[in-house]
Design a protein around this nucleic acid. Structure first.
Lengths: 145, 145
DNA sequence: TTAAAATGGGACTATTTTAGTACTCATTAA
DNA sequence: TTAATGAGTACTAAAATAGTCCCATTTTAA
């Protein structure tokens, strides 16, 4: 459960790859470094560029580069670009999507959990993901009434 | 992204419903209280019972009841019963599932995030979900190298 | 001016997953 | 004995996912 789709998974791999380059890298170059298939890499690059996370240079010698430094790119925005907003349940994101919304007493609590997860993904940056062994210093959630 | 499937969603609704009963409730009764369709409710009940979260009583006047008090039922085990183990990416759960595992530098960090999410879902109980407004007191994660 | 190298934007198809339903067997209380 | 009820399984339709390909546009460089 709670899996991100493949495209989002690849997306982070691609972002990591580009974060380690000093100049724009084209789709073929990304393929060689990541061992992902070329058509898939192209698709991911286009989506990331459209989301404003990459800047593209067209024409010969063109390619893609990060739009900002890795410290300023959250894990969240990469995943959202390729897999939409985080919503654990239909009801936790927006109202009116669930048939039994009016009979269900737990919607508020789902929203709280959703927000917590969003916050976590927001606070982790691409730079963090590049560290060999990221540590998450977290006071675990204490649920109180 | 990170959506649980409908069955898991329904599962928690059903568990909440049963947590508020003082005696076993049959599938029809759950349907009436939750407004979910009968076939779906039956399916969910069977899966929850098989996972040991509910005890079933067969025959006339039979039905289902929680196997333990809500304080002892984690959100995690309900979701796992209906939607499998939490694994944000293929690589974060088990080795050997991802083609590019050997070329990818971020697997360890995904595992850390996966563990964090697991811990959160483990620490929230069905009893917490029944509270009108659960609060999550969390020190937000500080990522350090 | 032209050819080659890149990205940009769609469209398309096969596969897999999900959702929902139905049917039959086993069990039990009245 | 009978009706109520869960257990197990199989099935179908719909939706999401994954992966690929094509062609237009832009830019560099010869």
């Amino acid at each position: 459960m709670l899996k991100i789709n493949k495209l989002a998974d690849y997306g982070l791999v691609v972002m990591s790859c580009l974060a380690q380059q000093t100049r724009p890298l084209n789709a073929r170059g990304v393929t060689e470094l990541t061992h992902l298939s070329l058509p898939t890499v192209k698709k991911v690059l286009k989506l990331l560029a459209r989301a404003g996370l990459l800047v593209s240079v067209r024409g010969a010698q063109g390619g893609y580069a990060l739009a900002r430094t890795p410290e300023l790119i959250s894990l969240s925005c990469v995943l959202v670009a390729l897999d939409g907003e985080l919503s654990i349940t239909d009801c936790s994101q927006a109202a009116g999507l669930c048939m039994v919304e009016h009979f269900c007493g737990i919607r508020h609590n789902w929203k709280m959990i959703n927000q917590l997860f969003q916050k976590i993904l927001n606070d982790i940056t691409l730079a963090d993901m590049l560290k060999p062994k990221m540590k998450l210093n977290v006071c675990l959630p204490e649920t109180v009434s």
